[in-house]
């Protein structure tokens, strides 16, 4: 297993962030969304509907403690305590195991809502490429889902599949994208969809003298055409945006754009927080609806 290997090429940076433009939360309504995914977890805190703080970390061995760790890290240095948050929505794979959440909402609904905030109301098609799943979502101008499709059965087209390749080629995961774009001529995509077979194929290509860059290009390109087929099945309409960890991989993003002939909207936020952000937005709406929207710090 990769966890036992001496060098961990798959590892990405965990961090937290606080909005410097919001000096204080006291006197405002504070809501939160916690997205416990299979691979990564995020907590987003909003103050009166504005992004205030978030954390992004790797999911631990169980969902409840991952949720607690994520929210604590997001609250770090803000002076906030759990009781200051008027409403929390849990989402993601571990959504029913967020001990302090007031409600669980599916990640599909949260992603659409979060993307509507991140990219604006013109976004219609969303591709979320997560650690162990891939989602295609079509939504309306309010961020409400009109159709969706999710694939969490197969590692092809997921962050996990990319991690397998990063380990195989001993390339840090955050460098995969740029390396794959450094090839002079685009090679044919890896032909196997299955990650296991693609790995065998890649080993053969390396043996045949291909450079790491070329093999990565062939894999990123295969991943791109695979996810595009999911988008096309679900309905593809402009504007288009990509979220999730793989959205940070320029090698996959550029190739998706090339196949579709459409540029993805450029993110102003971390692409991994879309689900948690949507959760915090749902939390705000639900808090107002149920009149639980107490004002923090009073």
């Amino acid at each position: 297993m990769s966890e036992n290997e001496t060098k961990e090429y798959w590892r990405w940076k965990e961090y937290n962030w606080k909005n410097p433009d919001i000096p204080d939360w006291r006197g405002s309504m504070v809501t939160a969304g916690v997205d416990v995914g299979s691979t990564s977890s995020q907590a987003v805190i909003m103050v009166d509907g504005q992004l205030y703080a978030f954390s992004n970390m790797r999911t631990g061995s169980d969902s409840p403690s991952s949720a607690i760790d994520a929210i604590n890290w997001a609250m770090e240095g803000t002076g906030l305590a759990l009781e200051d948050i008027s409403f929390t929505v849990g989402t993601g794979y571990g959504r029913v195991n967020v001990p302090f959440a007031n409600k669980a909402v599916t990640e599909i609904a949260c992603h659409a809502r979060g993307a509507n905030f991140m990219y604006g109301p013109t976004v219609r098609t969303l591709l979320d490429m997560g650690g162990q799943d891939c989602k295609a979502i079509h939504c309306d101008e309010r961020g409400k889902v009109t159709s969706f499709l999710m694939n969490d059965k197969c590692a092809a087209g997921t962050g996990r599949g990319m991690e397998v390749f990063a380990n195989l080629l001993a390339v840090p995961i955050e460098e995969v994208g740029d390396m794959s774009l450094s090839v002079e001529e685009e090679p044919a995509p890896v032909s196997s969809t299955c990650v296991v077979f693609a790995k065998t194929e890649a080993t053969g290509l390396l043996r045949a003298g291909w450079s790491k860059e070329k093999v990565l290009a062939a894999y990123c390109s295969a991943m791109a055409s695979r996810v595009v087929s999911l988008l096309e099945r679900n309905g593809m309409e402009k504007d288009f945006a990509i979220t999730g960890g793989i959205a940070k991989n320029s090698g996959v993003v550029k190739r998706i754009e090339r196949i579709l002939g459409i540029e993805a909207l450029k993110p102003n936020y971390d692409t991994q927080i879309a689900g948690a952000l949507g959760g915090a937005l749902f939390a705000k709406a639900l808090a107002e609806k149920s009149n639980k929207g107490k004002i923090a710090g009073r």
């Binding site: 297993m1 966890e3 061995s61 162990q132 059965k153 197969c154 590692a155 996990r160 599949g161 397998v164 299955c194 990650v195 296991v196």
Partner: peptide, 16 residues
């Protein structure tokens, strides 16, 4: 898990 890649992690967690 129905996929080799995911099943490997599942087996590891079963061992844990």
């Amino acid at each position: 898990a129905q996929c080799v890649v995911f099943a490997e992690s599942e087996v590891v967690s079963l061992i844990h």
